[in-house]
Amino acid sequence: MATMIGSGLSNQTGAAVGALAFPVLGPLGVVAVRQYVAAVVLLAVARPRLRDFTRRQWWPVLLLAAVFGTMNLSLYTAVDRIGLGLAVTLEFLGPLTIALAASRRRLDAGCALLAGAGVVVLMRPRPSADYTGMALGLVAACCWASYILLNRVVGRRIPGAQGAAAASAVSALAFLPLGVLVALRHPPTTAAVLCAVAAGLLSSAVPYLADLLTLRHVPAQTFGLFMSVNPVLAALVGLVVLGQEMGGPEWTGIGAVVVANAVSIATARR
C-alpha cells in the first residue's frame, strides 16, 4: 500500500513541480527535459539491445515513442491551461475507456454513463472554460489508451522492458532539437531546470520503479483499483503545490470518473 501511495503522489507531485517551471521553459521545455530523464532511467534499467531489434519490433516501438511524447506534451499543456486536477481526470478517461470497451456487462455500461456524466460536468459551458485545454486533456486520454494498446504489442514482441526503454530513447531524441530551441529562445534558469529534472524523476523514474515493486506483491486488480484515485491525488496536489482551487461541480465530476473506474475494476472477474 505504501508503495502505491508513494507512486501516485510522486507522479502527481512531479507534474506539479514541473508546472512551476512553465513560466521559464513552458510546457514544451519541461516535457523535453522529462523525456530525457525518462530515457536515461529506462535505458539504465532495461539495457535494450537495440541492434538486435528487427523491423517487426521497431515499428511498434516507433509508434509507442510518438504516442509517449504526444501524451506528455498534451497533458502538460493542458495542466498549464486548466490545472492539474482537471487535466489528469480527462487524461484518465483513456485507460477507463479501454477497461470498459471490452466489457458487455450492464454494470460497466452504467459505469460508462457515470463517467460520461462526470465529463459533462467538468466540460460544462461557462465563461471561464478553456476548451482548448480540455481538448488537450482528451488528446492525452486518447494517447494513454493508445499507449496501453501499443505496450501490449511491444511486450509480446520484445522481452522485458527493453521495448519501453527503446521507445523512451527515441522520444527523447525527437525532443532534443525542440529542447535546444526552447533553451535558445528562453534561456533557462537553474531553478527551472531543477524543477523540470525533478518532474522527470518524480513522474517517470520513481513511479516506474515503485510500480515494478508493487506488482510483485499486489494483484493487478488491486493495483488498478488504487490507480483510480490518481485524479483525486492530482487535484489535491494541485491545490497544495500550485494553489489551484476547484469548486463543488469540479470535485463532483472528478468523483464520478473515479467511482466509475473503481466500481468497474472492483467488480471485474479475476
Rank of each mutant, 00 (worst) to 15 (best):
A199E: 10
A112S: 08
G247R: 11
L149W: 05
V232S: 00
A65C: 07
M246Q: 12
T77C: 04
R216L: 07
L239S: 03
A39S: 15
Q244I: 08
A109L: 14
T214R: 09
V121Y: 03
L236R: 10
G133M: 04
T3V: 11
P27S: 04
V237M: 14
M1L: 10
G18D: 04
A19Y: 04
A141P: 03
V37A: 07
L63F: 14
R105C: 05
G200H: 02
G83V: 02
G6K: 01
L184Q: 15
V197W: 00
Q162C: 01
A234Q: 10
P249H: 12
L239T: 08
M227P: 00
M246G: 05
L184T: 14
Y36W: 14
A235L: 02
L113M: 15
L50V: 03
L100Q: 09
A140C: 13
V37I: 15
V218L: 14
Y36K: 06
A169T: 06
P231F: 07
L242A: 08
S128F: 03
V241R: 03
V30T: 10
R152F: 07
L242V: 08
I158T: 09
F68K: 03
T54H: 00
V88Y: 07
L86P: 01
D52I: 04
A192V: 12
L194T: 12
F68V: 11
R105L: 12
L212V: 01
A21R: 05
G94S: 09
R104S: 13
T89N: 06
G238Y: 09
A46Y: 00
V240Q: 06
G69K: 10
V240T: 10
P219G: 14
P219V: 11
V241N: 11
A164M: 13
A205E: 00
A117T: 09
H217V: 10
T97M: 04
A2N: 02
A210V: 00
A167V: 05
L178H: 06
L114F: 03
R81C: 00
A266D: 03
V24P: 10
M4N: 10
V45C: 02
A44S: 11
P207Q: 11
T97W: 07
S203E: 07
A135T: 02
L107G: 13
A140W: 08
Y147E: 01
G118L: 00
P207H: 03
L114M: 14
G253N: 11
A16E: 15
A99S: 14
C195W: 02
M227G: 10
V17L: 09
N230G: 01
L150E: 07
L149H: 07
L73A: 13
L100R: 09
V153M: 10
L194P: 02
A165N: 06
P188Q: 04
L62F: 13
S204E: 07
S7M: 13
A262C: 06
V61R: 06
G243R: 15
T54G: 02
T222Y: 03
